[in-house]
């Protein structure tokens, strides 16, 4: 760690910023950050809400036969303030876009979004010339981390998406800041 001679820079706060860039952060948090990311990836808490038929598969994934609890992602939170992951399961109608944006803003960072099914990828079967009712893709309203194709995807596909998301979190990428 470099010694900073304070009298040299005290007059001009801009110099402090430049100096900080040169020497890097005074304390390195990498190990702690890795540990936190590991913990986060093993206890993803999804928000309890389903938009359409994909939600039925999401419920099946949470129930006994597939059991999301096995990977620590079965704690569906009834409040956005306690949730990490938003699983967008189903067609997003335009009237629902505003509440979803509100819920996303209510979730504390770090937070992630999974777009489940064809409708949330690009509108799916409801996308045609002149349609007025749906949002053509979840990425129009929230930043999506993992896309799950299928109509609807099997529970195994949702598991695969959660594993991908875990990988992404453990890789320590900075997103949704």
């Amino acid at each position: 760690m470099a010694q900073i001679e304070l009298p040299l820079v005290a007059d001009n706060p801009k110099d402090i910023e430049e100096l900080r860039e040169e020497i890097g952060p005074l304390v390195h948090m990498d190990l702690l950050e890795n540990l936190l990311n590991h913990a986060r990836s093993r206890s993803l808490w999804p928000l309890t809400f389903g938009l359409a038929c994909c939600a039925i598969e999401m419920m099946a994934a949470g129930a006994a036969r597939f059991d999301l609890d096995r990977i620590g992602a079965g704690v569906f939170r009834p409040s956005a303030r306690q949730a990490d992951v938003m699983i967008l399961a189903g067609t997003i109608s335009r009237k629902m876009a505003t509440p979803i944006k509100t819920l996303w803003d209510q979730m504390p960072s770090p937070k992630w979004a999974i777009a489940m099914g064809g409708c949330t990828i690009d509108g799916g079967p409801f996308k045609y010339p002149g349609q007025y009712a749906i949002v053509e893709g979840a990425d129009k309203i929230v930043p999506v981390d993992v896309y799950v194709p299928g109509c609807p995807p099997r529970p195994e596909a949702l598991f695969a998406a959660l594993f991908k998301l875990e990988e992404k979190i453990r890789a320590g990428k900075k997103f949704n800041k």
Partner: peptide, 27 residues
């Protein structure tokens, strides 16, 4: 939604470009 501007099932209805639509020309 309550602040929507038009009535979609009218024969002369055209949905103007909006942030919820893709720009790839498919719709």
């Amino acid at each position: 939604e309550e602040d929507y501007f038009g009535h979609p099932l009218l024969k002369d209805f055209v949905d103007p470009p909006n942030p919820y639509r893709s720009e790839d020309g498919a719709s």
